[in-house]
Amino acid sequence: MRILFVGDVMGSRGRQMLTAYLPKLKSRYRPQVTIVNGENAAGGRGITGKIYKEFLQAGADVITMGNHVWDNRDIFEFIDSAKKLVRPANFPSPTTPGLGQVYVQVNQLKLAVINLQGNALMGQTLDNPFHKADQLLAQITQETKLIFIDFHAETTAEKEAFAWYLDGRVSAVIGTHTHVQTNDARVLPQGTAYLTDAGMTGAYDAVLGVQSEKSIERFLTQLPTRYVIKDNGRGVLGGCVVDLDDLNGHARKIMPVVINADHPFSFDD
């Protein structure tokens, strides 16, 4: 099975990049499943029902989320009916709407897609993602060996530790949240594909998708300057492609994907 994953879609520029390049990426890589992180899709904060449908129409099979999942109140109007939207599974299960995992059926194969949020430096403490993963896998492994986790977390240490903890038990642990693609894509010794951060999809000439002057102002003044999403100019798309062994669920290969002015898309690459 081949999976295409696209990192945090940031604002309208990110949505433009996704709709422009996702069909091209699918044509080039021929994934069986396409997963998109959409937690920043609505102006950098959350997602709307309209955007959720637009992502599905553009070619996404599953949309994962993160710490901004509840920022746009529109989500409460549709999350329980959005069967292809996955919010962090380690929110309190009795009181939290939506799904923390979904299954995607591909012919005779079934892929489990899980979203989990880290706790280190995230501004909120959810259920321990390591323990939550154990709980989820106890049931999921009865259904399938093909398991993909979007781990939405701040620190490299927590992401790496999480991947090593699950090495051989899940197919892939792909990090999101920090918006800069890391240069450490690898398959761990027991067969789990890992990437600390897949990168973002949005404005290229910006600071993590935010207007650079606003970000600079905050660092200069040390005041709580309001961030403004950059919605024009050159774009970037970050993500990865993961190839899995259909029989044992282990990763065979992980390939980073990046499209920007310095790495333009080409079918000849």
Rank of each mutant, 00 (worst) to 15 (best):
R2I: 06
G7A: 02
V9H: 05
G14N: 08
G14A: 06
Q16V: 05
M17A: 11
M17Q: 11
A20R: 15
Y21W: 12
L22Q: 02
L22S: 01
L25P: 00
S27N: 14
Y29G: 02
Y29N: 04
P31R: 00
Q32E: 13
T34W: 03
T34K: 05
I35R: 05
G38K: 05
E39D: 10
A41R: 10
G43I: 08
G44D: 04
R45F: 13
R45Q: 12
G46N: 08
I51G: 03
E54V: 06
F55L: 11
A58Y: 06
A60C: 03
T64L: 00
M65T: 09
V69D: 00
D71G: 03
D71Y: 09
N72M: 04
D74F: 00
F76R: 12
F78N: 11
D80V: 05
K83R: 14
K84C: 04
V86N: 04
R87Y: 07
A89Q: 07
A89N: 10
P92Q: 12
P92N: 11
S93M: 10
P94W: 15
T95W: 14
T96F: 07
P97W: 08
G98I: 04
L99M: 14
Y103G: 04
V104D: 01
N107R: 15
N119G: 11
T125M: 12
D127Q: 14
N128D: 12
N128H: 12
P129H: 06
T141Q: 15
Q142M: 09
E143D: 15
I147V: 15
F151A: 03
H152P: 01
H152D: 00
E158I: 03
F162I: 08
F162E: 04
W164G: 05
Y165I: 07
D167G: 10
D167E: 07
R169Y: 11
V170K: 08
A172T: 12
I174T: 07
G175P: 08
G175V: 03
T176L: 00
H179A: 00
V180T: 13
N183F: 13
N183G: 14
D184V: 06
A185E: 09
A185N: 09
L188K: 07
L188P: 07
P189Y: 06
Q190D: 14
Q190G: 08
A193N: 09
A193T: 10
L195Q: 14
L195C: 07
G202K: 02
Y204R: 13
Y204W: 13
D205N: 09
A206M: 03
Q211K: 15
S212A: 15
E213Q: 14
E217A: 15
R218P: 08
L220M: 12
L220S: 04
T221L: 11
Q222T: 13
P224Q: 05
R226G: 00
R226C: 00
V228T: 12
I229A: 03
K230S: 13
R234I: 04
V236I: 15
V241A: 03
N248H: 12
I254M: 06
V258P: 00
I259N: 01
A261H: 14
P264T: 12
F265T: 05
F267I: 10
D269N: 14
